[in-house]
Nucleic acid binder design. Structure first.
Length: 646
RNA sequence: CGCGGAGUGGAGCAACCCGGUAGCUCGUCGGGCUCAUAACCCGAAGGUUGUAGGUUCAAAUCCUGCCUCCGCAACCA
């Protein structure tokens, strides 16, 4: 009998740098689901890999002084090592630089081009000089730039575009007919309301400004831009080809679920389905956009040095504890947070005290009272039924939760069973039974029941913590196997336990925090030091170049927020000759009152532009701060408005 | 009026769709136990469920206004 297939993927990781724990979470999550499905008897194919093309990588490689290929080989290897370290059980690790992938992407591009879904944008390409942007016919209504409202020019620059709008209605229907297609629900609304309803724009799918990408076979000036290259990994990995696909593809496609970060949901729920429609292939059944893992309340940022890496955590807590933490702590649809305090708290409370200690004390008693072998003697008591009932219910609840990918809830169910089992020990008080020779049979049954309960826990927890599960199973004298082995809670037979071994040693919170904080501070200091010389070096310019810029000191007369915008302030300044209006994106750093009356430096001869419909005649000088903010450069109040700067 | 989500004891969450005495984990305090990793078990304190109204015999749960946070979009000359 054929097993039901289950094809699950992560997004492919971008090889610009080492992935942090938030990126790693995605792989662990996917792995837990994949392992669970396997244990449920599915024929699972789990794909992960790396996205290795693009300008960013070309640039970083150049800076580092290696070829792009050498660079991505290094990072891809590192990523794969981390995925392996986290014990992820992927069936295939695809790289977008793989020969098969590259060739197939080229064929896909050609096919879409031949059938007219991709067209060369040269003929309809409009270029807005101040915006440095390309637009298509549909975007430039009336021959003006949709961004700044200025006239656009036809240009020699060319690019290939994908006709998205052609498939828009079909996609809309598909989303309506398949309410579970986009998960969680709130994400679906974002996609439909923000993109589908307003109408899709044609998508630029090639670049000629850099070389590090999959070349367009019939036009060597162009490389295929990220969408078609990266997204198609899900099918090229299975041996899809427009000329006829391989066995794996026929067996596993369509994907049962793509697990991706919420930031790339748009590509997976709009562009990717449309690409597949254009290719005439079935769509994935579900796209699950997981939330983010934040450090405290901040996004992890490399320049800030508050990045947490999986390998550092593993060094301190072990693989399974890290897996447990990210899986248990992440809410279903909201961002989760990671702090060292909560990691330690979870570790001690759930893993050491509740789970580890349960196994330890039970196995110790079996060894101590019975030399390791206990059997069900038939001497039962009323409290037994409740324990058994809890174990059975736990098994079903875990399956239910996992069906909806509610991984954290599934784990909570398992820990609850461990709590219930600890309670059972108190209810039955085995140490008291042990003192009375006549109660020896009852004692045996009590321990037998406990070991059965632990077998349930060990079996159920396998997808989340594979190594720990194996240890538990070995200690309680069972053998690892599928969820099917939990069809019943045994009420007869005998069990021989192994040596008791501490699964998770309790952590001294204070001591561990000191260690971790010391490491963190060192990392932040290193990041700060590295940031200084890391500043991009601008090309040298001549004095003539500088003379092209007209800088003036101006006085801010009026200032108010621009309507319907979060970042823009409309500012009226006195430039010495009169008043002029500028628009500046500093509303998040300054309130209007703070700026009125101040003297600042203006780039006075910048070409005017329209921002959110408001004309801007110049730009204020401001300095970037390390934490994303910026500060306007204030001029000495003694300088009169209009003074030129040289 | 761009779209959407959320505000529940000290912390983190559940219950809201299908109204009926607010539940769980951590923390705090008290008690019990000793097989075990100062672990485990029991009990207690602590919430007028953001706010103002409305519907209802009854609202955390439904409706309306307001406040605050967050996500998406737009936007950083």
């Amino acid at each position: 009998m054929d097993k039901t297939k289950f094809y699950i993927t992560t997004a492919i990781a971008y090889t610009s740098r080492k992935p942090h724990i938030g990126n790693t979470y995605e792989v662990v999550l996917t792995d837990a689901i994949a392992r669970f499905k396997r244990r449920m008897g599915y024929d699972v194919f789990f794909l992960t890999g790396t996205d290795e093309h693009g300008q960013k990588i070309e640039d970083i490689a150049k800076e580092t002084g290696v070829t792009p290929k050498e660079y991505v080989d290094g990072v891809a290897g590192e990523i794969r090592n981390i995925w392996d370290m986290m014990n992820s059980s992927y069936d295939k690790f695809i790289r977008t630089t793989d020969k098969e992938h590259v060739e197939t992407v080229q064929k896909i591009f050609k096919k879409l081009y031949d059938q007219g879904d991709i067209y060369k944008g040269e003929y309809e390409g409009w270029y807005c000089v101040p915006c440095e942007s390309f637009f298509t016919d549909t975007q430039v209504e009336g021959g003006v730039c949709p961004d700044c409202g200025r006239p656009v020019k036809k240009t020699n620059e060319e690019a290939y575009f994908f006709r998205m709008s052609k498939y828009q209605d079909a996609l809309m229907k598909h989303i309506e007919k398949n309410p579970d297609f986009i998960q969680p629900e709130s994400r679906k609304k974002e996609m439909v309301n923000n993109f589908l309803k307003p109408g899709l724009q044609d998508l630029c799918v090639s670049r000629s400004s850099f070389k590090w990408g999959v070349p367009v076979t019939f036009d060597d000036k162009h490389v295929i831009y990220v969408w078609i290259d990266a997204l198609s990994n899900y099918i090229t990995a299975l041996g899809y080809s427009p000329d006829g696909s391989g066995e794996l593809y026929n067996k596993y496609w369509p994907a049962d679920v793509h697990i991706i970060g919420k930031d790339i949901l748009r590509f997976h729920t709009i562009y990717w389905p449309i690409m597949l429609m254009a290719l005439g292939e079935p769509l994935p059944k579900k796209v699950f956009g997981h939330p983010w893992l934040l450090f405290g309340t901040d996004k992890m940022s490399k320049s800030r040095g508050n990045v947490i890496y999986a390998d550092d955590l593993v060094r301190h807590f072990g693989v399974d504890a890290v897996r447990y933490y990210v899986l248990r702590e992440m809410p279903f649809a909201q961002d989760g947070t990671i702090t060292y305090e909560t990691i330690i708290a979870r570790f001690n409370a759930d893993l050491a005290n509740t789970l580890g200690n349960l196994v330890n004390r039970t196995v110790a008693m079996a060894n101590k009272y019975f030399g390791g072998t206990v059997s069900h003697t038939g001497v039962t008591d009323t409290m037994d039924a409740d324990l058994i009932d809890c174990a059975i219910k736990c098994r079903d609840a875990v399956a239910e939760k996992m069906e909806e990918y509610r991984v954290a809830d599934a784990l909570e169910e398992i820990i609850s069973l461990a709590r219930r089992s600890n309670k059972y020990i108190d209810e039955t008080a085995p140490w008291a039974l042990a003192k009375d020779e006549e109660k020896k049979e009852r004692l045996s049954t009590v321990l037998f029941n406990l070991l059965e309960s632990i077998r349930f826990i060990g079996t159920l927890i396998y997808p989340f913590m594979p190594d720990t599960a194996e240890k538990i199973i070995a200690q309680c004298g069972a053998s690892a196997s599928d969820v099917a082995s939990l069809s019943e809670f045994a009420v007869s037979g005998s069990i021989t336990v192994g040596e008791s071994e501490v699964l998770f040693a309790r952590i001294d919170e204070k001591k561990k925090l000191e260690e971790l904080n010391a490491e963190m501070e060192a990392a932040m200091a290193a990041a700060a030091a590295a940031n200084e010389p890391e500043e991009e070096k601008m090309p040298e310019i001549t004095i003539d170049d500088f003379d092209k810029v007209e800088l003036r000191v101006v006085k801010i007369l009026e200032c108010e927020p621009v309507k319907k915008s979060d970042k823009l302030l409309r500012i009226i300044v006195d430039d010495g000759e009169g008043q002029r209006q500028i628009v500046s994106g500093i509303a998040q750093q300054y309130t209007p009152d703070e700026l009125i009356g101040k003297k600042v430096i203006l780039v006075a001869n910048l070409k005017p532009a329209k921002l959110r419909g408001v004309e801007s005649h110049g730009m204020l000088l401001a300095a970037d701060l390390p934490d994303d903010g910026c500060k306007v450069i204030l001029a000495d109040d003694a300088i009169p408005a209009g003074a030129q700067i040289h």
